[in-house]
Design a protein around this nucleic acid. Structure first.
Lengths: 211, 211
DNA sequence: TAGATTGTTAATCGATTAACAATC
DNA sequence: TAGATTGTTAATCGATTAACAATC
């Protein structure tokens, strides 16, 4: 229970959460690991093994209560709370994320966008104002944020990440095509181009008839 | 060499590629697996093991030629070619991707955006026109595309994915929060919310002091 | 040649799957 | 109670790391 949970497990948690939300929406009250395994294309063993990292959420002979399990996974993921978010870089990606309804709906409250470009400063995207990057530190002092979205160009990303860490940010969602490693900071890479490259690789594999 | 390459390896290839591009830009001509391992935080053993899936690209006693290896990984990933891309869903994400310079720069040619919303049809984002989703099949017949970006809302995503597969698309880059599995189609999930949830989990872990 | 570093084989480690006793 | 299904322990499988002979 107290032992370190592997990354592989953590990455399946959001998928479990999505499935349980869908089931909840369908009015399904209980589900067995076997049924869930069929829906998700994961073995029932793995589901039970994964969940047992966090405790016993089921009932032998019955299965899992959908709404109860959904609630527990919500807690485990930490998405039952609200998070203050700042977005660094008000280009295409920054703007799109600021306007992405899914986030504000889910308790991510975007406090501000930041950019170096004076032409962008003062503009508003999805109701969020663009501030100058120079005001980052003073802003964070007055409005502490939990998460920083790093949507700056490659060249500036590393330095900005270090600035964010110094300003007290402990979670960075990184969209820049640069690997960021910072002591005591959780970094989640959302490198779009990397995913796209993996896709073209597998497309090539399909075309060559491998697999 | 001919054996199936594991997903773990494929996901590291874009990182190798990025590093080698950076080294190339710095004017570095050769690198050993040991030096590269230090830069990337990966063991030298793993680098050699990974690369040997595709052939012997190095020279014993010398190391790897940066530009040669960069070129080979480019080929392996299949990013030395051009790809025709259609974007399904012209909301925030679809618009942002259409305008994302990184893609057009890298040989991804976005042919069109598609949406159901009549108000969006006819608009242009990053020089790409929004067409009505009804014209998807006829458009693809006249302008065959390699990759479809699925940036549609949750409810419609699955059906649209099936439509794309029927229209001959063999690679889907999925931004919708739905797991898509289609026979003979490479699907790369770019589910933003999943990544964000993994981040909040690890932030919580940090705060609880679990490292 | 001697030194360095690869490509590859073997050893270790961790994650997934299978099996089953516990129990609702 | 009998049937079902969990939580967990053991077995298998795959991926990472270590070691080293091959060789530039």
């Amino acid at each position: 229970l107290a032992t370190k949970v592997s990354d592989a497990v953590i990455r399946r948690l959001p998928r479990y959460f999505r499935q349980l939300c869908a089931l909840d929406g369908e009015g399904v009250a209980k589900i067995s690991s076997l049924e869930l395994s069929r829906r998700m294309g994961i073995t029932a063993s793995q589901i039970r093994q994964d969940l047992s990292c966090f405790g016993g959420f089921g009932q032998q002979g019955y299965g899992y209560s959908v709404s109860f399990l959904r609630g527990r996974i919500e807690q485990i993921l930490g998405i039952d709370r609200k998070y203050g978010v700042v977005i660094i870089g008000a280009g295409n990606i920054g703007q799109a994320l600021a306007q992405y309804a899914q986030f504000s709906a889910r308790g991510y409250e975007i406090a501000a966008l930041f950019d170096v470009d004076e032409a962008l400063v003062g503009n508003t995207f999805g109701g969020v104002e663009v501030l100058h990057i120079d005001s980052l530190e003073s802003f964070l002092q007055h409005h502490p944020a939990d998460i920083a979205v790093l949507a700056a160009p490659e060249g500036e990303a590393l330095e900005l990440a270090e600035r964010l860490a110094r300003a007290g940010i402990r979670a960075i969602w990184n969209f820049a095509p640069v690997d960021i490693v910072l002591e005591g900071v959780a970094v989640e890479n959302a490198q779009l181009t990397d995913g796209l490259m993996a896709l073209t690789y597998r497309l090539g594999e399909l075309r060559r008839g491998g697999k």
